[in-house]
Design a protein around this nucleic acid. Structure first.
Lengths: 246, 246
DNA sequence: CAGGCGCTGACTTTCGAAAAAACATGCACT
DNA sequence: AGTGCATGTTTTTTCGAAAGTCAGCGCCTG
């Protein structure tokens, strides 16, 4: 039972001018991104009800705008809507995680192969740059790394996006992106146990970058697949622990 | 310059009570379905601007509701939104058609295989029933078949949905459904040349049903794949003709 | 005591007015 | 003629009030 001491997080509208804020300009677009992020980061529990009264306070936006974003997220599968009784955060399940991982691995491998086929210098530069940005956080002492976790998440996503950026199959990219966010939602669950894996991940990333820049499709996709599957298995293990506890 | 004699198409709100209207109950859900249908059936040209002034008149619903549905369709890929300058119908292209077909074939085959693995009696009954419903229209004289074309489209979709209904992989179904609607959008372009193919399609459908009910996964998926690829190629041919004309 | 009826409060859904932004048009000035 | 500014028009975006819906509770009745 939670009191009404909901401090309003961002009341001032985009006041004067910021050239571009985040990805899209309009408030609705920002909201969409933010809301997706907040769900992915489990700020709302799965199956939690998303009441407009709360949301308007939390995001400082009107009901209509909220509704629009929620509707978008419904078709991305982050939110469910049963008519007449509002929106809820989509549920999670072991079976879902397994299936999502399977699709994600498949899409990501194909997209990477296509990117390697078509990538140009700019693409390579993008990979190196985003890898570097990611690594800066990776090499931080543990405490600070935890503090800037959300930044790590963002850079990790950008890194993987950079890898496949040169893929010319637009729908493949789209589907990949969908599944990426979905698995990110589960990945959060293993935040705690990433201690010992932290440095291994860094090594894996480097290996993937090297194979990719060498245009070794086979090796790159193989490494990428293992990279993804490993994290998924960690999450799965946590999941089982969790459901045993209940 | 158009006078204000715009007869309102559906002013009376769902007056008293219809147990369920269409698929979802709330006006917004209906609108979503209708709008998707209208785009798939090329009632709006690709890249056409979707102005709220027009849409509110056409569908008799408020701006907010429209916006919500449009936002949903954006993430399904039927509509694009660039911030500040509104919604447009998503463009079409040969490359898109090819890619969509590839994904669709892949998903549909896997879903069918899974359905065959898990399907029960109810599933079989559903297939037979929807096949029958589809066939009733198929056997109509040509003129009436044309008149009831939108009904044919609906039954055709229901038939293919029935085939994969027993598939237990929820995301696979979801992705399949997405791609189904996308390819339907292109399929419309070959409406004219379906004359000679009409009866062949019927035969193909029957063969698919038989192989499926016999649980012959290999045969069923092979037939299904050819079925899909054939229509796609017809569309592609029309597409080339069309772009040569311009 | 079970079942029906209607009231109540919480929440959702729908709407269109009002503010903001983009676009078009014309005018002035170089 | 071309460029830049000012003005008016169209279209989008945002908002919250009003209507509608649902679930739970108490009350009445058979």
């Amino acid at each position: 039972m939670e009191m009404t001491l909901n401090l309003e997080v961002r009341k001032q509208r985009r006041v004067s001018a910021r050239p571009d804020e985040g990805s899209g300009s309009s408030a609705g677009q920002e909201l969409l991104t933010q809301l997706r992020l907040d769900i992915v980061n489990n700020l709302f529990a799965p199956e939690a009800k998303l009441k407009f009264a709360d949301l308007t306070k939390r995001y400082g936006l009107g009901i209509g705008t909220l509704r629009e974003a929620l509707s978008h997220l419904v078709s991305e599968g982050f939110v469910t809507l049963d008519s007449g009784r509002g929106f809820r955060v989509a549920p999670v399940s072991e079976a879902d995680l397994i299936e999502i991982t399977e699709h994600y691995v498949d899409f990501e491998k194909r997209a990477l192969a296509d990117a390697i086929r078509h990538g140009d210098d700019e693409w390579e530069a993008g990979i190196v740059a985003s890898y570097h940005r990611l690594n800066i956080i990776h090499e931080l002492p543990w405490e600070e790394r935890m503090l800037r976790h959300s930044e790590w998440v963002e850079r990790h996503r950008e890194f993987h996006e950079a890898l496949v950026a040169a893929c010319e199959a637009r729908w493949l990219l789209r589907l990949r992106s969908l599944m990426y966010y979905q698995s990110e939602r589960y990945r959060f669950l293993s935040k705690m146990s990433r201690n010992k894996n932290g440095s291994r991940k860094a090594i894996e990333h480097r290996a993937i970058v090297e194979a990719t820049l060498a245009r070794d499709t086979d090796k790159a996709t193989r490494l990428l697949e293992r990279h993804i599957r490993e994290t998924a298995e960690t999450v799965l293990a946590n999941f089982e622990k969790r459901s045993k506890a209940s």
